[in-house]
Each structure stands twice: as structure tokens, then as C-alpha cells.
Simulated scan of single mutants.
Amino acid sequence: MFKEPEKVFNSIDFNSLSENCLISLIQHDNIKMNVTQVWEQVLKWEYLDKVYPYKKVIPKDLRENLFKHFMDQQNNNLEPNMIKEIDSMAISSIQKNLSIEKDFNIIVDKINDLIHKLLNKEIKLKQQVIKYYNDHNMNSQEIYNWLLNNQISTNSIFLLGYFNFHGIVTSQNNNKAFNLFINASEKDHVIAQYFVGKCYTHGYGTIKNEKLAFEYYEKAANKNYAVSQLEVGFSYLNGIGIKEDFKKAFYWYEKAANNGIIAAVNNLGLCYLNGTGIGKDYNKAFELYKQSAEEGNSDGMVMLGYCYRNGVGIEIDKQKAFELYQNAANLENKIAQNNLASMYERGDGITKDIHKAIYWYEKSARQGHEGAKNGLKRLQINN
């Protein structure tokens, strides 16, 4: 492939060589350069600004001398003792380490993409990320160790924060996580901006600050990050960290819904139901609740059940309402459990059954639903 490798090293297109071409070049039988000269050419390559691939290949002091030698370009002759330290394994080590670093960078990028997708699908993150490691035969401890020594991109900075935030192969440390999220967010890492907002909302690794939480959610929302758009809508709706503004709440819920956030679809339905930031439209509310329920959102099931039970945007159908409440109750939705208990207690569209009413009131009450607690007391006194 290369009849005269030295000419390739000196060509103006040298930096555009692929990794495989570079490795083939430095292993070429016809190369008439000593190992030190080869190293100088490697340093010229586009990996010059990424020192990390070489740090496992040569000792630190030697590496620094090599870089100094290259940058100064004042003396083409290295000290003899330096040449001796670069043994015959150096070139093969370059190939191995470039491959390792490249693989870890790809893994880090893929995990960031996974977290992005899971957040927008409102799926519990930690378990799914760990499952992803296991399914792809990844060693999370190795990834964590690599991250500790390779804070070289916003993705790697964020992911190290994520490991600390969830206590993956390390003790949970919200302070470290917060600082890493801040670091990545300042470099415009959109998921990190969302997590900084989350930290300020709940006081994870920092003091609670609703105003700062809103600002970080808004930064990510303005970059079209859907889950942050949901948070911004919620903030405007409830006046959290920002002045209450129903029209802006509706605006951001709509953007989040259009970007696939099912909770936002459900919240839009509530806006149409109550005329919040938009004119009342029961038919539109029903359609949005139906969409949310069909996507498996338990709150959407509850509200669709409400529509069927009360004839909102649709004819009354108590049996359909019961089925929807049952489905949502099985998903541990405490409101659905309370509503199901209420239907059993009253015999509302179904056969009255006090024992089942008590059962569902108990389940809802254990999750803190006040209405269920009152219903449970009432039935226990009277029965």
C-alpha cells in the first residue's frame, strides 16, 4: 500500500489518515525511521490534542519530554537513554491503546444516548442503564474506572456524575454528582442541564433553589429537550421558580407533548378540561387522555376513566370507567385505587362489594391518599 512510507509522513494530507492507515504505515516493512522518529509522526497526527491514548504506552516523564521535543522543534536528537526506554513493544501498544480508548469513548456516547432516550420515555433510569450494561456484556466497574481518568468530553463528565448520582459501582455522592453536572452543563451538555435543575429542585448535592432549577430546566428546554420542557410547563403552571403563567404552561406542555412526553399529553388534557391557558374543550381533553392512556400512562387512564364515569367529552360508560381504574390501580396509581374503592363501596356501575372497597382503600391509603384514608376509616367504623 505504501512504497515509501516516509513520503506519506511528510505529505500535507498526513493528518487526514484514518487510524487503520496510520497503524499500517508505522508497521510497514520498508519504513526507514527509528522508533523515536515514528513517535514524532504519531504526535503530528490528529490525536495530538488527545494525549490520553499514549499515557499507558510510555512513562509520564518520557511522554512529557517527547511532547516538549516536538513542540520546541529545536533539537532533532533525543537523549540516548530516552531512546532506550521506547522498546520494541511501543508500536503495538499504540494500536492497542488507540483501540481501547476509541471503544470506551463509543460506549460513553452510547450510554449518554440511552439516558437521553429513557428520560424522554419517562422510564426509570438506573435499572435500565445497569440492564444495558449487562445485556451488552459491559463491565460497569471498568467504565467507571476509565471515566475517573478520562474526563475528556462533556459526555464523560456527565456520565461520571451520573454514576455518583445513582451510586453505580460506587457510593452515592450527590455532591460530586452535582459538581460534575454543573461542569458538563457549563459546556452546554443538555442532559446535565436537566440534572442540575433536578438537583436544585430537590436539594441533591446543593441547597434547594427553585429559581435556579427553573433556569437550568429552561436552558435545556430551549434546546428542545423534551423532559425539560415538561418541567418548565409545570413550573409556569404552579409558579415554581417563576411567576405563574398559564399560557406559557400550556405552550411548554404542548411542545413537550409534540416531542413525545406522554405526561405532557396528559397535562394538556387537564388544561383543556379546566380551561387553563386555553379555552375549555372537553372533546379535546378526552382525546388527549385517550392518547395518554393508550401509551400506558396510569394518570391518563385515571382521567380517561373520569371522562367515562362523568360523561366528559364522551357518553357515560361506568363499565369502561371501572376497567380503566382497574388497569391504573394495578399499576399502583393511588388515585385509581381510591376511585376503584369508591365504585365498589357505592356499587357505582358494578356490584357493590365492601370487602373489595376496603382492600383498595387500604392500598391507596398506604400510598398516602387522604381520601382513601377517610374512606377506610368510614368503612371500618360501619362494618
Rank of each mutant, 00 (worst) to 15 (best):
E19M: 14
E19D: 13
I26Y: 08
I31R: 02
M33C: 15
W39C: 15
Q41Y: 15
Y52N: 13
K55R: 13
P59K: 09
D61M: 09
Q73K: 12
N81W: 11
I86C: 09
K96T: 15
K96E: 15
K102N: 14
F104C: 05
I111L: 08
E122T: 03
I123P: 02
K124H: 07
L125M: 02
K126F: 00
V129H: 00
I130W: 02
I130L: 07
S140Q: 11
I143H: 00
I143N: 00
N145F: 09
I152S: 11
S156I: 04
N179G: 06
F181A: 03
K187P: 05
D188R: 05
F195H: 09
Y200D: 05
G203Q: 03
T206R: 00
T206P: 03
A213T: 02
F214G: 03
E215D: 14
E218R: 13
G233F: 06
F234C: 11
S235T: 07
Y236H: 11
I242K: 01
E244Q: 15
E244Y: 09
L270Y: 14
L273Q: 10
I278G: 02
I278V: 13
D281C: 01
Y282F: 12
E287A: 08
Q291W: 07
E295S: 14
S298Y: 11
Y308M: 08
N310S: 09
F322A: 03
A329Q: 03
L331A: 15
M343R: 00
G347M: 03
G347S: 03
K356G: 05
W360K: 00
G371M: 02
Q380L: 15
